[in-house]
Design a protein around this nucleic acid. Structure first.
Length: 482
RNA sequence: GCCCCCAUCGUCUAGUGGCCCAGGACGCCGCCCUUUCAAGGCGGUAACGGGGAUUCGAACUCCCCUGGGGGCACCA
């Protein structure tokens, strides 16, 4: 597959292991992956675990599992920043020696208090530079007094920082509005900016694609690279944010945002990848259903959009349905079996699952939704019940008792074949001069499937078996009669 | 408070000065099909935030306003 020479693209996905993989991060990972694959470059996974207080080993594992589930394979890594602390310390030392950084003895609480005060007074927050020009004597005194020491990067006082964003074009800011920032904590651990700049340089990263929420921090990282004397060029591209219904950055309160949630709800990785790719990017020809290979072939940063995108669960559902319906019977049967066993235990047999897949495929939207429609089949007879709202709507059916009785009689001794069942039920209704339509059928659906709408009734009855079907018809009948 | 980014149907978007009284997709509405509900087919509703400027001509260029979002941590 790869006899074409690489053009040297090296990108990375660098999540902090402080929680599950957020769908917004996954989208960023996907764009990096697509970019790398499109250019036959290298996709690197790097774990930014410099925040010891929030990082957890289990998340490192979880993020990798989820990336694999999504099908985003990486070529290098995972590199853990926790394994590379000496490099960051060395870099900090160089910055200190060159006076590009300085030791700061303000505590986080003090800085925060001063920021709050500034804000309250109508001034801008941001480090006020108190420790910027300390003398050696000052530092000795502060250290002797037992004050903790962090290291801050000295940002330029004047001038403009500017870079060409891969998706937005020229982006610039006045240095005077950018405050000095901490690069090494008082416990000597490196902060994101430092580790990030050092690693991108040492790992030979060529392009960085990340969320727009990191746009402002780019100037600071670029300044760090410059101060560190990094040679190679690094190009940044900032992707539009994913937002919820209120247009705010997508978060937990908007619904499912953890990738595991999508997996648990029966979404397909291919469908999710396809949908995510269309959030902030569109192919030239407007086609929407795209395979991974097509995405890779067509992906182009020039076609990344600039404004925030609303994560539309409805469209995701539609797209998932498209993929489900395109699956072959065996593939869908396997998914149904897994989901049914997750819901109803190992007792669920393969044949039933396969049957559900076969009769439900053309109506499927999600695997979970499909299996829910088949609950009537998997639930034990003592556990079967008719959904209250369905019963309510169906209980008023004209001549309900007669219908149930008639159907019961026709199904009592006929051959057990879908087509025969079909004919018998129609005959049962014909006896009453009724037809199989939306006025009569919902009652039967409710009686047999526990809901007024669901999998095709004749197949459902066939799968359920005569005995169980008759019992349910009886139960519904006596309930209606009461 | 300051800084940055963004601005086409409800939503995702196409559109880079005339092909646009703006195209596609999801959703929604209607019809058809039909054993329910879906799925499917057909049709419909619906948008260039406002104001200037440039131009023979602006959704597309520039400016202002407005609106939305993001950032300003010893989080990333």
């Amino acid at each position: 597959m790869n006899d074409t020479p690489r053009d040297g693209v090296r990108v990375r996905f660098a999540p902090a292991p402080t929680g599950y993989l957020h769908v917004g991060s996954a989208r960023a990972a996907l764009f990096n992956w697509l970019f790398a694959r499109h250019h036959r470059g290298t996709f690197i996974l790097r774990i930014e675990d410099t925040d010891a207080a929030r990082s957890r080993g289990e998340w490192i594992v979880g993020i990798q599992d989820t990336l694999r589930w999504l099908g985003l394979d990486w070529d290098e890594g995972p590199y853990l920043q926790g394994d590379r602390l000496d490099r960051y310390a060395a870099a900090a030392g160089r910055l200190l020696a060159a006076s590009r950084a300085y030791e700061c003895y303000c505590t986080p609480d003090e800085v925060k208090a001063r920021n709050d005060a500034a804000l309250a007074a109508g001034r801008s927050p941001g480090y006020d530079g108190r420790c910027r020009d300390l003398t050696d004597a000052d530092r000795e005194a502060l250290a002797a007094a037992g004050r903790p020491r962090s290291i801050r990067f000295r940002t330029p006082d004047t001038g403009v920082s500017s870079f060409t964003d891969l998706v937005r074009g020229e982006v610039s800011v006045e240095w005077s509005t950018v405050a000095d920032f901490v690069i090494v904590r008082s416990d000597d651990s490196p902060v994101f900016f430092l580790a990030n700049a050092v690693d991108d340089a040492e790992m030979g990263i060529t392009h960085v694609l990340r969320g727009e929420d990191l746009l402002d921090s780019t100037h600071r990282v670029l300044a760090l690279r410059e101060a560190l004397g990094v040679e190679g060029r690094l190009q940044y591209g900032h992707l539009p944010l994913l937002v919820g219904a209120d247009r705010a950055k997508l978060s937990k309160r908007h619904g499912a945002v953890a990738l595991e949630d999508f997996r648990d709800r029966g979404y397909l990785p291919d469908a999710l990848v396809n949908y995510l790719a269309l959030l902030g990017w569109a192919p030239e020809d407007g086609q929407e259903i795209l395979s991974r290979d097509q995405l890779i072939a067509m992906f182009d940063l020039d076609r990344v959009t600039h404004s925030a995108a609303f994560f539309d669960y409805q469209k995701l559902d539609w797209m998932t349905g498209e993929y489900l319906r395109a699956l072959c019977e065996e593939e869908l049967a396997a998914l149904v079996l897994d989901e049914a066993r997750a819901r109803w235990g190992e007792a669920v047999d393969e044949a039933s699952a396969a049957a559900v897949a076969r009769i439900g495929q053309e109506r499927a939207t999600t695997v979970v939704g499909l299996v829910e429609q088949a609950d009537f089949l998997f639930v034990g007879d003592d556990g079967f019940e008719i959904a209250p709202d369905s019963w309510e709507q169906v209980a008023a059916t004209d001549r309900g008792v007669e219908i149930l009785d008639s159907v019961r009689a026709h199904l009592g001794a006929c051959a057990w074949d879908v087509e025969v069942i079909n004919a018998e039920i129609r005959a049962a209704l014909a006896d009453l001069e009724l037809k199989a339509n939306k006025r009569t059928m919902p009652l039967l659906y409710a009686a047999v499937e526990g809901r007024r709408a669901g999998l095709p009734l004749f197949d459902a009855v066939h799968l359920l078996g005569r005995e169980r079907t008759l019992a349910r018809l009886d139960a519904a009948c006596s309930r209606l009669d009461a």
